[in-house]
Amino acid sequence: MTSALDAIASQPALERPDLLAPPVLAALEAWPHADRLRVFEIDPAIADTTALNEAYGLPAETGANCVVVGGARGGDERVAACLVRADTRADVNKVVRRELDVRKASFLPMERAVEESGMEYGGITPVGLPAGWRLLVDSRVLEVDLTVIGSGVRRSKLLLPGALAGELPGAEVIEGLAQ
């Protein structure tokens, strides 16, 4: 565990439902590993990874970003949330496009990602995603002892043991998802 993360005052996630978006809370209540997630409150102004890392003195590899990507093939739209370490970027043009089996993949417009996920921009997380979305997890996320992810809202973050990222409902662990 990273010593900077040890210093963060956190609580069991299910004890602070006020710090979770409704779909995140619902997913955690149904997930057998929810007791291993912790939540901590933050200033919404530092919800973005770089600002959070600066404020808490966290190295980039302790965080994981969740980006939403979509594409279509034959009129069939395919959407995936991609969880990658914060010190990497999802390989949207090659790996994600291939995994979705689409001709072109691109980030979902922010307004649509927010509306469909029921989460706030800057807080979108792989926990509690819409049923039709796939969850692609870069294998390197699993190597991190403890990672910081969104909570569905900008005013808090979740602490997730990296190995559990592969146990999230619907998770597909992909080698080389990120660059």
Rank of each mutant, 00 (worst) to 15 (best):
G63Y: 00
V102Q: 00
V67E: 01
A51N: 08
V96R: 12
N65R: 04
K104L: 13
D76M: 13
R98I: 07
G57M: 07
A113E: 01
E99C: 14
A86D: 11
V114P: 03
A80Y: 00
G74S: 08
V67D: 01
R103L: 13
V67S: 01
N93S: 05
R85L: 09
E116L: 13
L100F: 02
D48G: 09
A72G: 09
E116Y: 06
E111K: 14
A90N: 06
A90T: 12
A64Q: 05
V96D: 05
E99L: 13
G57E: 04
E61D: 06
C66H: 04
A45W: 00
A86I: 04
V114T: 01
N65F: 02
V79F: 10
C66G: 02
L52D: 08
E54N: 11
D91L: 04
T49A: 15
A64R: 02
C82P: 04
E99T: 03
E61F: 14
C66L: 05
K94W: 05
V95P: 05
D48N: 13
R89H: 12
V96C: 08
R78N: 11
V92A: 05
V84L: 03
E99S: 03
A55R: 15
L100S: 08
N65L: 11
G57L: 12
S117I: 06
N65Q: 02
G75K: 09
L100T: 03
V68G: 02
V79D: 08
V67Q: 01
A113W: 04
T62Y: 00
G57R: 11
A72F: 07
A60N: 01
D101K: 13
V96P: 09
A60T: 02
N65S: 07
R103P: 05
L108R: 10
E77P: 09
R73K: 12
T62E: 05
F107H: 09
E111I: 13
K104G: 03
A47V: 07
R73A: 14
V68M: 01
N53I: 01
T88R: 13
R97C: 14
G57C: 06
C82S: 10
N65A: 08
K104C: 02
A55K: 11
C66A: 04
I46E: 11
V79P: 10
G74Q: 05
E116W: 01
A86E: 01
T88I: 03
C66P: 03
G74I: 04
L100P: 06
R98T: 12
S117H: 08
D87P: 03
L52M: 09
V114L: 09
D87C: 03
R112S: 11
F107V: 14
R98Y: 07
R98K: 15
A80H: 02
T49W: 03
K104N: 13
E115T: 07
E111W: 05
D101G: 14
S117V: 14
R112T: 15
V67N: 00
N53F: 00
